[in-house]
């Protein structure tokens, strides 16, 4: 006959959602303290990983910014044979504005054109002697919306512009637009390729580091399952640990990145031939920073979840 009965069930400490959450977070923090070294290794790896990705993004964002500035030079000019009356000009402007892709339309009268010409020939005004303003045609200069600043879109745009009555000639710096488009395509492709390789490498390194750190504690997982811990009970503290590692790693990376950015902004003038502050060097937009932080947290969480799947069989 058994005298053994389950000891009177004592008051449970961790009932309800908040009680359990508090217990698991407490357990995760204790684990971090007791396994300080592996945690430092994991957080360090995540920090470096996010730092590499964020540096790459920072460079890419700035390159795109510069390229975007250049693209403002993509401009289409339409010439007219004769000077337009104000009402004719208004109709024409509205017709041009109606073409998809038009951003801004500026009218350049014969006088304005002559004035610009004279400015360009500064110092050699003698050449202009005897020439009247009539010699240059009036025109409208059209800047395009950024989506239309590539060779295909410009070609389509020019075709439509040519059909507008009164327009005799259209110029759009074809060669320049072509080169710009090629460059932008190259930049995007290179960015995508490099970025993907970086992301893959980072995921590989971080997930393996987490796998190793969990492997080093597989005895703990085994003991927990031996004494009757449910899968959730075993995994929850490790997952919280993963989230905390990811958040600290990503936070640290963003702090280091911000520090490096401002240090560069203030000191680069000493060793570079330009002043980065004046050159409009931009920091990552907030959306990117938030995205990087979330990626860090996900990296920690998913890395832990997939590794645990291997080691927690029951």
């Amino acid at each position: 006959m058994s005298r053994n009965k389950q000891a009177k069930r004592p008051k449970l400490a961790n009932e309800g959602f908040t009680g359990r959450l508090r217990f698991f977070v407490g357990r995760a923090l204790l684990n971090i303290r007791q396994n300080a070294f592996v945690n430092i290794v994991t957080i360090g790896t995540i920090t470096l990983a996010i730092l590499i990705i964020s540096l790459f993004m920072l460079v890419f964002v700035n390159l795109e910014g510069v390229a975007n500035d250049w693209s403002k030079r993509v401009q289409v000019t339409a010439y007219f044979e004769q000077e337009l009356a104000p009402e004719e000009l208004a109709t024409l402007k509205s017709r041009v504005l109606a073409i998809p892709g038009t951003d801004r339309v500026t009218y350049v009268s014969k006088e304005e054109a002559f004035k610009r010409f004279r400015e360009r020939l500064k110092g050699q005004e003698l050449l202009l002697e005897g020439i009247t303003t009539d010699v240059l045609p009036s025109s409208v200069e059209i800047s395009l919306k950024s989506a239309s600043r590539n060779s295909d879109a410009v070609a389509v745009y020019v075709d439509r512009l040519k059909k507008v009555p009164g327009v005799t000639e259209v110029q759009h710096g074809e060669e320049w637009v072509r080169r710009y488009t090629t460059f932008m395509n190259f930049l995007r492709l290179a960015g995508l390729l490099l970025g993907s390789f970086l992301v893959l490498a980072v995921i590989f390194i971080v997930s393996n580091t987490i796998k190793l750190t969990i492997y080093s504690r597989k005895e703990e997982l085994e003991i927990l399952s031996l004494v009757g811990a449910t899968r959730f009970f075993i995994k929850a503290p490790f997952l919280i640990e993963g989230i905390l590692q990811g958040a600290s790693g990503a936070g640290l990376a963003l702090i280091i990145l911000t520090g490096c950015y401002y240090a560069f902004l203030h000191n680069a003038g000493n060793f570079l031939s330009f002043n980065p502050a004046a050159a409009g060097l931009a920091f990552l937009p907030p959306v990117y920073s938030v995205g990087l932080f979330v990626s860090g947290v996900l990296l920690g969480f998913i890395g832990s979840a997939t590794s645990l799947k291997r080691f927690v069989s029951v």
Binding site: L224, V227, A229
Partner: peptide, 13 residues
């Protein structure tokens, strides 16, 4: 303590 933590006992107990 692990055995009892799994059962959800309070720290004091």
């Amino acid at each position: 303590a692990i055995t009892l933590e799994v059962l959800g006992w309070s720290k004091q107990d």
